[in-house]
C-alpha cells in the first residue's frame, strides 16, 4: 500500500529529486481516504489537515460567496495535490474541496510535510518552485476570467482538459464547467452548441470530441 503513495509522492513537485528513504518515511505517515462522488472533503476556513494527493478520481476546489454561489477554482485529477497552501502555512483551508467522482486520496499530515521541508533544503526549493507555478496559474486564471469571452474561456478549458488525461478521465459536468468559468450552466450549454455548430467539437453521448484543434485554439485566442 505504501508503495502506491510513495510513487505518487515522488511525482509531486514537493518531493522531486528527494532521497528515496525520505519519500518512504513520508509515505508511511500518509493516510488513505476514500469517498464517493459528491462528498465534501473539507470546508473553507477549517484547520488544514495536510497535503492531499489524488490517487484516483477527480476533485473540485471551490470558494463560496455570501449568497452561497460556488466558484470552482480548480478541477484536479490523479497525481495532483491540493490544499497545498493550508498545509504549508498552517492556517485554515483557503478553499473547500469536494469529490467530483468516486475518489481515492492520501493525506500527508501538515506537520509531517513542514518538518520534512525544515530538514531538507531540496524540499524547500521544490516548494518555492511549486508555489511560483501556482501563482503563475492563478495569474493566467485571472486573465482568462477578465479578458476573454465565455466561448474563448470554454475553448481554452476544453483544450486543457483534453490535454491532461487525469482531468478528462472521470468526466466533468456542465455545472462544474460553469462554476469554473464563472458563468451559468445555461450559458455553457449555449457556448457548447456554438462550438459544435462551428465544427470545433462534436458530441457523442458522454464524449465531447475536439474535432478541429486549430479552430478551437483560434476561438480560445491561443497562439
Amino acid at each position: 500500500m505504501t508503495a502506491i503513495i510513495a510513487e505518487l509522492l515522488a511525482k509531486t513537485p514537493y518531493f522531486r529529486n528527494a532521497p528515496p528513504s525520505l519519500i518512504e518515511t513520508m509515505a508511511a505517515q500518509a493516510i488513505l481516504r476514500e469517498y464517493s462522488a459528491g462528498t465534501v472533503l473539507f470546508l473553507e476556513g477549517e484547520p488544514a489537515s495536510g497535503l492531499w494527493i489524488i490517487e484516483h478520481g477527480s476533485v473540485k476546489i471551490t470558494r463560496m460567496n455570501t449568497d452561497g454561489m460556488e466558484h470552482v477554482l480548480r478541477i484536479l485529477g490523479a497525481g495532483m495535490t491540493f490544499n497545498d497552501i493550508g498545509a504549508l502555512d498552517g492556517r485554515g483551508n483557503p478553499a473547500g474541496a469536494a469529490a467530483l467522482s468516486d475518489v481515492r486520496l492520501w493525506v500527508l499530515p501538515a506537520e509531517t510535510l513542514r518538518s520534512a521541508i525544515e530538514a531538507h533544503p531540496v524540499l524547500a526549493l521544490n516548494t518555492i518552485s511549486a508555489l511560483t507555478a501556482r501563482v503563475r496559474a492563478l495569474i493566467n486564471q485571472v486573465e482568462d476570467l477578465t479578458l476573454y469571452s465565455v466561448n474563448a474561456r470554454l475553448a481554452r478549458f476544453l483544450l486543457k482538459q483534453a490535454q491532461d488525461p487525469a482531468l478528462s478521465g472521470p468526466g466533468v459536468t456542465r455545472a462544474a464547467i460553469a462554476a469554473y468559468l464563472n458563468t451559468t450552466p445555461q450559458t455553457i450549454s449555449t457556448a457548447l452548441r456554438e462550438l459544435e455548430s462551428s465544427g470545433a467539437i462534436r458530441f457523442d453521448r458522454h464524449h465531447i470530441y475536439i474535432e478541429d484543434e486549430i479552430q478551437l485554439r483560434s476561438i480560445g485566442m491561443i497562439e
Binding site: Q161, V172, T173, A175, L192, R202, H207, I208, Y209, I210
Partner: peptide, 29 residues
C-alpha cells in the same frame, strides 16, 4: 433546481480512418 448533471469526457477526436463505419455521428443538442 440543478439537481441533475451529466458528466462528459473531453478528448481529442480519433483520427478518421476513412471507414465511415468507425465514425459515429454526434448527438445534436
Amino acid at each position: 433546481l440543478n439537481a441533475i448533471t451529466l458528466p462528459y469526457m473531453i478528448q481529442f477526436a480519433q483520427p478518421i480512418t476513412g471507414n465511415e463505419g468507425d465514425h459515429h455521428e454526434g448527438t445534436t443538442r
